[in-house]
Structure formats: C-alpha cells, structure tokens
Simulated scan of single mutants.
Amino acid sequence: MGLIGSCDGLVCVKECRRGMFILWNPSTRDYKIIPGSFVVEGEIHGVLRRKYGFGYDCNGDDYKVVTLSCEENTVKKKTVAFVSGALHWVVDREADDMRVIISLDLASKTYIEVPQPDYENFSYLAEVGASRGCLCLLAYDNFDYCDIWVMNKYGVGESWIKSIRISYWLGDERNYLGHLKPLTWFIENGEIVLSIGGNLASYNANRNSVRCSSPRKELPSSMVVFQAIPVKLELKAP
C-alpha cells in the first residue's frame, strides 16, 4: 500500500501489486475500489515515470485520482499536494535546470508554475505539502538549515512566510540530522512532527531538540527516544 493523498476527510491509497486505488472514509469506514484503468491521465509528454495525485474537482463535483506521466529526468519522487482545487509537485525545469513548483487545476485541466518565496540565500527546493488549506514547501538553505514556508494567499508570491527554520546540527554535540521531511507543516504547542531518516520524530524549535520513535536506522546520540504505538487499520464497510 502507498499513500496517494487526502482531501475533505477522504484518504486515497494505492495497492501496488494489482494497481488499484482505494478511497477510504476513516470516520464511516466506508471504502471504494477504483481499478487503475479508470484513473484520469494528466497530459504531460515523455511517458517514463508516473506520479499520482488525489483531489476534488469543483466543476464536476467529484473526487479524482490523477496519474501524472512525466519525463524521468524531470519529475521528483516527492509529495503531490492538493491545494485550492489544484495538484502541486516539484520538477526540474528543462530550460535552466531550476527546481520549480507546477500545479494542475483539476477543473480547468490547465498547468501553471507557482511562484516561490524570495529566498534570502541560496536555497534548494525539496518538496511541497499542504496544511490548513495553504500550500507549503520545504527548502534547504545552504544545506545548513531546513526552512518550512507557507503561502498565506494562494498564487501570491509575496504572501510566502517562513514558518520555521530547523538547524541540521542538533544540540551541543553538533550531530547532523540528515534527511528530514515534515509530516505536519505548522507548529503545534511549540513542536512540529517530522520524519527523520524514516523515523517518526517531534522537533522543538525553542530547545532545538528532537524526540524520536524507536529508530529503525542510526540516529544522532543526543536524540531522546520515545516509544510509538502502532495502530492497525482495517479497510472494511461497517
């Protein structure tokens, strides 16, 4: 199973072996199976690699699972985010090899490039996300810091604000965090939930400290480990 996305309380996952998609409502436990052949194709040339997105088409008053067929050397294996009626993902622009954010409007089926923040220094766009109806992005600042940005007004480049800056160097021991990914894009109670090296973690910006679940991979020694309790979810009708 692979998570494709969520929208209006519905969760979309892909069953990789048979290529089908499952739409699930966790509150009612109702679900619907969609064969892969019924998934809407995005019109991008150079069909070598596929990405998937899930969102709501306001014109058709329906939810859509979209396959984005992209050239292998441009598309990134990152999140596809649904915000303001459009799917968003990160690609390398062929003309100048710059990383950009592309959006696909599900109602009009049109593509546009979304403006990025006015970065203070050299920043490397890593991926996009969505939270509280806002488009968010993760960027590396000189690979010393990880910055999370939030677009307060959709489509307006000047509305980007830096939500949080996370140092790659943790605590006094100068431990390097390595690859991290936000799981929540806003700070709640002074903390933000991350995935660090594939491990669930909670970062406290005030103390520059991390609490991490029982690690599957080696992590900096100064991390405080906590035990996460797995929850098994069963897809079935009530």
Results as ranks from 00 to 15, higher is better:
residue 134 C to K: 15
residue 141 D to Y: 08
residue 137 L to W: 02
residue 119 Y to E: 08
residue 103 S to G: 05
residue 128 V to A: 07
residue 100 V to F: 04
residue 104 L to I: 02
residue 129 G to S: 06
residue 140 Y to D: 14
residue 104 L to Q: 08
residue 102 I to W: 07
residue 122 F to G: 14
residue 101 I to N: 03
residue 133 G to N: 06
residue 111 Y to H: 15
residue 118 D to R: 15
residue 142 N to Y: 09
residue 129 G to Y: 03
residue 112 I to T: 12
residue 93 R to F: 11
residue 92 D to C: 13
residue 112 I to A: 11
residue 117 P to D: 14
residue 144 D to C: 11
residue 116 Q to C: 10
residue 142 N to I: 08
residue 136 C to K: 03
residue 117 P to W: 14
residue 143 F to E: 13
residue 117 P to F: 14
residue 142 N to E: 13
residue 136 C to I: 03
residue 100 V to T: 07
residue 130 A to R: 01
residue 103 S to Q: 10
residue 127 E to C: 09
residue 120 E to D: 14
residue 112 I to F: 05
residue 130 A to L: 01
residue 96 D to L: 02
residue 132 R to S: 11
residue 144 D to V: 10
residue 142 N to D: 13
residue 92 D to Q: 11
residue 108 S to H: 07
residue 102 I to G: 05
residue 93 R to G: 06
residue 97 D to Y: 07
residue 96 D to G: 04
residue 104 L to C: 11
residue 120 E to Y: 10
residue 128 V to W: 04
residue 116 Q to G: 15
residue 124 Y to A: 04
residue 105 D to F: 03
residue 95 A to D: 13
residue 120 E to S: 15
residue 115 P to K: 00
residue 135 L to A: 01
residue 93 R to C: 08
residue 113 E to S: 10
residue 128 V to S: 06
residue 124 Y to G: 02
residue 108 S to P: 00
residue 137 L to C: 14
residue 93 R to M: 09
residue 134 C to R: 12
residue 114 V to L: 12
residue 135 L to P: 01
residue 144 D to A: 10
residue 104 L to F: 15
residue 140 Y to I: 02
residue 110 T to H: 11
residue 139 A to T: 04
residue 107 A to L: 00
residue 130 A to V: 03
residue 100 V to M: 10
residue 112 I to E: 15
residue 140 Y to H: 12
residue 130 A to P: 01
residue 108 S to K: 09
residue 128 V to M: 04
residue 114 V to P: 04
residue 93 R to Y: 09
residue 138 L to M: 13
residue 117 P to V: 12
residue 98 M to P: 00
residue 110 T to W: 04
residue 99 R to K: 15
residue 136 C to E: 02
residue 98 M to R: 08
residue 117 P to M: 15
residue 105 D to S: 05
residue 116 Q to I: 15
residue 136 C to S: 12
residue 129 G to P: 06
residue 127 E to S: 13
residue 114 V to K: 04
residue 135 L to Y: 00
residue 110 T to E: 10
residue 122 F to C: 14
residue 125 L to V: 13
residue 105 D to A: 06
residue 94 E to M: 09
residue 96 D to N: 10
residue 124 Y to F: 15
residue 107 A to K: 05
residue 126 A to V: 14
residue 143 F to H: 07
residue 143 F to R: 04
residue 118 D to T: 08
residue 122 F to V: 09
residue 113 E to H: 06
residue 93 R to T: 03
